[in-house]
Structure formats: C-alpha cells, structure tokens
Simulated scan of single mutants.
Amino acid sequence: MEFTYEANRIYLADETGKMLAEVTFPDVSSKCVNINHTFVDESLGGQGIASKLVEAAASQLRKQGKRAFTSCSYAAKWFSKHSDYLDVFAGNPDAN
C-alpha cells in the first residue's frame, strides 16, 4: 500500500482510481495548515490506515517546517496520543 502525496493532501486510491483513504490539510498561512478531513473506506476499516495517513501528514509538515491546527476530530485525537509529534501540533482552532 503506497500513499500518493500532493501539496495539501495524502491519499490512497485503488487500481481503478477509486478513493480509498485520504487526509487533507489546506494552508492557513505560509507556516501552518489545518488538518480538516480524514477518510478511510469501510473496506479498509480496522487496519490503522487513518493513523498512518495522519502520521504521514505530520511527517511531511515537519520536514517542511510547518505546524498543524486540527479541525478534524480524528487528527486532534491522534496528536493527543502521539507526543513525539507535538512540535508539529498547533492546537485546535475551535478551542477558544
């Protein structure tokens, strides 16, 4: 299983092009994104794909020197369980 990387999106599609999983993280500023969506097709449920997607996004952002807000509840929960990526986590934009 190999993810496809785009500027603000990482995804997995099958051989027909059907979307099976994705994480999106549009730019908020030049140094910050908002991880706003994760999706995993039910056919891949229970395999940890969402976690792998968010980790891939966090790793990519770290390499780019960017930080991430999370309006996606799954991503927020993921960061709370992965303290080794807290340097990338900028918080929840709705937590005021």
Rank of each mutant, 00 (worst) to 15 (best):
F3C: 10
F3Q: 00
F3P: 11
T4F: 03
Y5S: 09
Y5H: 13
E6V: 10
E6N: 02
E6S: 02
E6F: 04
A7P: 07
A7F: 11
N8G: 09
R9F: 05
L12N: 05
A13G: 04
A13Q: 13
D14M: 15
T16G: 04
G17L: 13
M19N: 09
M19A: 14
A21I: 02
E22H: 13
E22W: 09
E22I: 02
P26D: 08
S30H: 08
I35K: 11
I35G: 12
H37A: 14
F39T: 01
F39V: 01
D41E: 07
E42V: 09
E42M: 15
S43K: 10
L44N: 13
G46K: 09
G48H: 03
I49R: 14
A50C: 14
A50G: 06
S51D: 07
S51I: 00
K52V: 12
L53A: 01
L53G: 12
L53H: 05
E55H: 06
A56W: 05
A58S: 07
S59C: 15
S59M: 04
Q60T: 05
Q60G: 06
R62C: 04
K63Y: 02
Q64K: 13
G65L: 15
G65Q: 04
G65P: 10
K66R: 01
K66Y: 00
K66I: 06
A68Y: 05
A68C: 10
A68I: 09
F69L: 08
S71R: 04
C72M: 11
S73T: 14
S73W: 13
A75I: 07
W78N: 07
W78C: 00
F79K: 08
K81F: 02
K81D: 01
K81N: 03
Y85H: 14
Y85K: 10
L86K: 01
L86V: 11
L86F: 14
L86D: 05
V88H: 00
F89I: 06
N92G: 05
D94E: 15
D94P: 03
N96C: 06
